[in-house]
Amino acid sequence: MSSRVLILDPLKCTGCRICELACSYISRKSFNPAISRIRVITWFEKGISIPIYCQQCDPAPCLEVCPTGALYRDSETGVILWNKDKCIGCKACIAICPFGAIFYDPKEKLITKCDMCNGKPLCVELCPTGALSYEEALRIIDVKRREAASKFYELITKLTIVGK
């Protein structure tokens, strides 16, 4: 099973919301944040933006609450997918999702959620700053660990040079 994850670096997000339109284009050929499966929340006074999207939780509350098995996990990629034909529109998944990342299209009267674009998420491809990335979880953790260690490294280098 692939362990690639969609990961956010919030310090790189400029709040441009290109991801929202990339998503609505790839799913519906329309430009409409309201049907996008990734939505950016911005605090304008503080200059902070956080995109919200499905975390592909495991165990996933939405899977457990879905009464018809319309939501299921792809055994190969680990991505939670959705079968329209089995969905009865009860919205239990929306109610239980801790991230507010299962969305609802009022026009089509259907739920909608991130399907990782078959392994090539367009939001990641068009993100201009690299705030969104889609990589192996282990690799991301490697990078983060090295970044954290580097701060100590710089500090210790400074101290030893000053000490000499």
Partner: peptide, 17 residues
């Protein structure tokens, strides 16, 4: 500078926070 900011749907992001 603490953050770069962008207007909607802008890949340039010239805004400063």
């Amino acid at each position: 500078l603490v953050m770069r900011r962008a207007c909607a749907f802008c890949p340039i992001g010239c805004g400063r926070f």
